[in-house]
């Protein structure tokens, strides 16, 4: 497995799209977060202040959808998957290693940027008692952000494996996490609202601006189920298909 992970990391870092996605993710998440924190002079609670500073991730995570989809679809789109599957005929292991590497990269980036956002909230937003990075509610916000980023990336990998096409995977991924949740939210009916809550919205249910609000455990479970479902379907199809 070490060999497979090492191979996956070489594949990830040796294409330019990885670095473009990384740059977009970091710049958008940090930039929007700083702007939001700078525009909020005061807040009543530390977790709300941190949430404000994490706003940028709502848009930035689209870069993770693209990164996740590309990590598989680019290999198939270019035919590179044929050499990869000749070298690693255990296809589910290959997909698992690819997923672990790209999700690990997403987790690392998110942890660093989210921590930066928490520091910005502490510096820019006046909160009674201040914002302490070791405060459990602050840690929960940061942890949720990392978990959400990992799940959205895994969802992207799953969609990439199911569709094996970049355009289709990215399109469907963005529809699921970014277009449909708010579209259903504004549709207004009770069923549309339920539908919106059952979609893997960005920021695992905490995004009241872009989707119908849910509690974080529900949001995490919904996004987790979508990611696991897409990934399992992708692995199943990968095992079955001819290349």
């Amino acid at each position: 497995m070490t060999g497979l992970l090492s191979s996956g990391w070489i594949r990830l870092r040796s294409v330019r799209s990885t670095w473009w996605c990384t740059a977009v993710y970091v710049v958008v998440a940090a930039g929007f977060g700083w702007l939001a924190a700078a525009g909020t002079p005061t807040s009543s609670r530390a977790d709300v202040a941190v949430e404000v500073a994490l706003t940028g991730f709502g848009f930035a995570q689209l870069a993770l959808v693209v990164l996740g989809v590309l990590s598989v679809s680019a290999e198939f789109g270019t035919g590179s998957a044929v050499s990869a599957l000749v070298a690693v005929p255990r296809r589910t292991s290959w997909l698992a290693a690819t997923t672990a590497v790209v999700a690990g990269w997403a987790a690392l980036l998110t942890a660093l940027v989210a921590l930066g956002c928490a520091v910005a909230a502490r510096a820019l937003i006046a909160v009674p008692g201040g914002v302490s990075p070791t405060d459990p509610v602050v840690l929960r916000e940061l942890g949720l952000q990392v978990a959400g980023a990992v799940l959205v990336t895994v969802l992207g990998v799953g969609l990439g494996a199911v569709l094996r096409a970049t355009a289709g995977g990215v399109g469907l991924g963005i529809a699921l996490v970014f277009v449909l949740p708010p579209a259903l939210a504004v549709a207004g009916s009770r069923w549309a609202e339920r539908g919106s809550q059952a979609l893997p919205a960005l920021r695992v249910g905490q995004e009241s601006f872009l989707a119908v609000d849910t509690t974080w455990p529900v949001g995490l479970a919904v996004t987790g189920a979508w990611a696991a479902g897409a990934w399992a379907l992708g692995a199943l199809l990968l095992e079955r298909r001819d290349f």
Partner: peptide, 8 residues
């Protein structure tokens, strides 16, 4: 052609 054109 079984390779990613962007890779060395």
């Amino acid at each position: 052609r079984a390779r990613h054109p962007g890779r060395t």
